[in-house]
Design a protein around this nucleic acid. Sequence first.
DNA 1: ATTTAAAAGAGAGTTATTCTCAATAAGGCT
DNA 2: AGCCTTATTGAGAATAACTCTCTTTTAAAT
Lengths: 152, 152
Amino acid sequence: MSMSFYTADSLKAELHERGWRLTPQREIILDIFQNLAAGKHLSAEELCDLLQTEGHDISLSTIYRTVKLMARMGILRELELAEDHKHYEINQPHHHHHHLICVRCNQTIEFKNDSVLKIGDKTSKKEGYHLLDCQLTIHAVCPACQRSILPV
Amino acid sequence: MSMSFYTADSLKAELHERGWRLTPQREIILDIFQNLAAGKHLSAEELCDLLQTEGHDISLSTIYRTVKLMARMGILRELELAEDHKHYEINQPHHHHHHLICVRCNQTIEFKNDSVLKIGDKTSKKEGYHLLDCQLTIHAVCPACQRSILPV
DNA sequence: ATTTAAAAGAGAGTTATTCTCAATAAGGCT
DNA sequence: AGCCTTATTGAGAATAACTCTCTTTTAAAT
Ligand SMILES: [Mn+2]
Ligand SMILES: [Mn+2]
Ligand SMILES: [Zn+2]
Ligand SMILES: [Zn+2]
């Protein structure tokens, strides 16, 4: 979890470090995530739609490639909030938080807890791993779903 | 995270509570997970193979249905250890642990931490959620993969 | 300006997982 | 012990998220 806020220049620097390039597409996608309201999470499809409403036609292929790249760089967090597709959000230490998810309706609540990141730091350091992200995921059944008697 | 160890009878009881049935397939699959070596995680395909070597022909459909059912009941934990398929392990409070995963080679290290479950309990209780599972997942790059210069 | 290779776009391909539906069997009841 | 209801299984088809392939474009080093 290296940087906290990326400018076009700092993203460019990190990409160049690895022999990669800064493209308009990457810059635009990063910008979307940095300006996303707190608590919002985007799937690849949702990101594609949002880009289109803002007048940016970026192909789904590029979107999938970019979010994966940024997750592997530690810039985005990859979240398993739903059954069949991933969600992404920006990864910024000072907004570091966790997710409480209802396994039936997927309603998600974010919460903060300072000790979790400490545990992640300590554990990865101890094993010699380079930390990218550290997330506590709570799977549970929300009050509304507890009341309903639907299957599982 | 209700029970710690299931017998055929206690599984039957929990199923019947919801109008469901105890089948030989469910009993056998639960048995596999309860006797799995610590640190082992099974995908649906791996579980299918393992069942076959033990002389049990259970269809893939049933396997997928059963692990999902048991995860939603809180009996199994659903883990995202690899990119393209899920893994499962038994969910027992006294063996409660977490995972440090290399995002490049998927090597996984298990570790324990008592405070994490407390955070999960407190948070879900506060929101009125019924806790099923609570897992801290650390995404990182292992020492070996840090040395290699391969793409992402 | 030229060159080189990384990246984008379009669409085909892959595959884990789910769905459908006919056949089976769990468990309640008598 | 047999009957009945309906949850569950098994087989294979269907789905859809995601990846791959290949051509074209373009970032950026020289
Ligand atoms: Mn979030
Ligand atoms: Mn484990
Ligand atoms: Zn719910
Ligand atoms: Zn590795």
